[in-house]
Write a protein that binds this DNA or RNA. Structure first.
Lengths: 347, 347
DNA sequence: ACAAAACGCTAATACGTATTAGCTGTTAAT
DNA sequence: ATTAACAGCTAATACGTATTAGCGTTTTGT
């Protein structure tokens, strides 16, 4: 079947006039002190390897040694649709850079398509092909996560994850603190009536933002909460204005953009009449529009950190860690003092 | 280290009172007709499998089968920095989808490299980790391509490639025909004086566009050709107007956008006073501006096709194929009849 | 009743690498 | 001179699965 036979160590051995074992010994470093193979032989073998472009079969490697210096990457949503691409691209960049530095290759595990969401554990799990696995996605399958936690296969999640029958190793970012900091800033600017546009439950990232928000609102009035995302800007704006809010927190940049545009059309000044805060940044969209007050998610650093953690677990069997990285505040130009708006009359 | 030894078929066999071979036969479907194992035995084995939660080790599976079911994805430019991401993302999406359907995982060789252009050979013998490899990028290294063609490692290029010491297997798209169709359309609309903004040589995609253009211009006057890309829109517009062209072909969307904006600023109507045609589409940028008349490059389909072709080559040793996909026309709103402009006086 | 066929299963082996035990020939030690 | 040590290699085996050849037993055909 297979088009062309793969080169094997036996082939190399024949060409170099040594045994397969010798080829393996030469390949696996074994400082000339260790395995006692003279420089001359090493060079003869290496020459053949160079000339033929031989590389050890990673599958056989993993079979024999249990390690193949490959890290798996599993994404719960397809990694590259343009809608998702913005989401995964910075993570992949960070993973790739870290993996390269650490001497690992990356295997994108395509998993099993199971309707809308993918599955790691399909009929034939390919999970163990790599030495360990990074898992990313907006929303994880809780049962699968529990299976991963229960198993002994090394993995690390990118993004915080709740316990799933045990602690989940992850490198995430601290949405809660970052959100709380923005709330504090809003308070310091004199706002008392605030609103929240975005869900309060769902994935961990959602929960964290809401937790940071609701844990920091002492002394403030949450006069509106619109849990639905993706509604028309005008409708949202109507509701927000009616509530008397002077500062609004958005979980979705797209919603913020719509409301800001609606406000601009009506001559409502941002931030003079209405302050807008976005809980996180997107990669794009920085260009054209308004620069929103928000915080930046250190996606690349998360990915690097997760990769390094995974390698620690693979190579040194390091204990499970859970790391949260800070989100840097983005000052933007959509948050201002609450002066004028505090005069607004209420029905 | 590992908490508990992994279950193997031997364990299952012992528990079910059969041999390892029987377990394997039961696992691998083998319709009850095929391998002649009675229902009763099957059920006994399956029961144990269910109770223990056994899953076959994918590494050993692939080892035994002789195929790793891994496809390499090599890009000549780093794929994930956001600058390049727009270019590669749709291709990667197509590859990912096709690979998933075909049961392959993807080895990502898409990272940064030492030099300016990345090399397949040299350090990156790692390509051979995979069963075969997809190669993509704006510009290929000709020598490397020749080496690939000469070697017996299965690969397929995404995008048409000239022969390199032999035919290169590829799935590309037919820029020449698509461009020629646009030229015909322009002619039918009464234009006689046309211009071309973009290089006439370089990578295959460039050459194909130019070939399609110059092969279809019978009866038309090419009154301007600006081979340089990325110039200021005003400068280009000056030149184009001075030439008396009524329809302009752009290879780069960015150039077209600049010229269109410059025209708008000066009150020159598009397409009434000047028709603009773009030879290909970009993923983004559809949103904000003008919808240009152009053709759409079936990037995802190209990638899918290339992946399928590669799998054919890997699994069935299929012969080299070269496939060009059609580009669908995009009507847009920047190409119109040449009425008014034909009145333009010439110096 | 006896050979032939069918059935139900297993032993043996291949896959490509890593690794350990051990073999051969040379050199050093006593 | 004999033994011991050592250098330089190789044979053999394990890893877990898929697969083929084939073995013993039962059924079928005549």
């Amino acid at each position: 079947m297979a088009a062309t036979k793969r080169l094997t160590q036996r082939d190399i051995a024949r060409l170099a006039g040594v045994s397969q074992a010798t080829v393996s010994l030469v390949l696996n470093g074994a400082v000339s002190a260790e395995g006692r193979i003279p420089q001359e032989t090493r060079e003869r073998v290496n020459k053949v390897i160079r000339e033929t472009g031989y590389v050890a079969d990673p599958v056989a490697r993993r079979m024999a040694k249990g390690l193949n210096r490959i890290l798996g990457v599993f994404t719960y949503e397809p990694a590259f649709p343009s809608a998702q691409a913005d989401f995964f691209t910075p993570f992949l960049l960070g993973i790739e850079e870290a993996a390269q530095e650490l001497g690992y290759d990356l295997l994108l595990l395509t998993g099993a398509a199971a309707g809308k969401q993918r599955k790691i554990f399909g009929n034939n799990t390919r999970l163990r092909l790599a030495d360990g696995c990074l898992v990313l996605g907006r929303e994880f399958d809780r049962d699968e996560l529990a299976r991963l936690v229960a198993g002994d296969y090394p993995f690390v999640a990118v993004g915080r994850r709740d316990d799933a029958g045990g602690p989940v190793p992850y490198v995430g970012s601290d949405y809660a603190s970052a959100t709380a900091d923005l709330v504090d800033q809003v308070r310091r600017l004199g706002h008392t009536r605030i609103a929240y546009v975005g869900p309060s439950e769902g994935a961990e990232s959602t929960i964290d933002r809401w937790a940071g928000f609701s844990g920091a609102i002492a002394g403030l009035h949450v006069v509106a909460h619109i849990p639905d995302v993706g509604q028309r800007g005008d409708k949202n704006l109507d509701f927000l204005l009616a509530s008397g809010a002077t500062a609004v927190f958005f979980t979705e940049l797209a919603d913020a953009i719509e409301v800001e545009e609606a406000a601009r059309r009506r001559g409502i000044e941002v931030p003079d009449a209405l302050s807008i805060v976005v809980l996180g940044n997107h990669i794009r969209a920085e260009k054209p529009g308004r620069r929103f007050t928000s915080f930046s998610i250190p996606r690349e650093a998360m990915a690097r950190g997760a990769t390094e953690m995974l390698v620690r677990r693979v190579e040194q069997n390091a204990p499970i860690e859970q790391i949260l990285l800070q989100c840097d505040p983005v000052e933007g130009e959509t948050l201002g003092p609450a002066h004028r708006t505090s005069l607004k009359t209420r029905p």
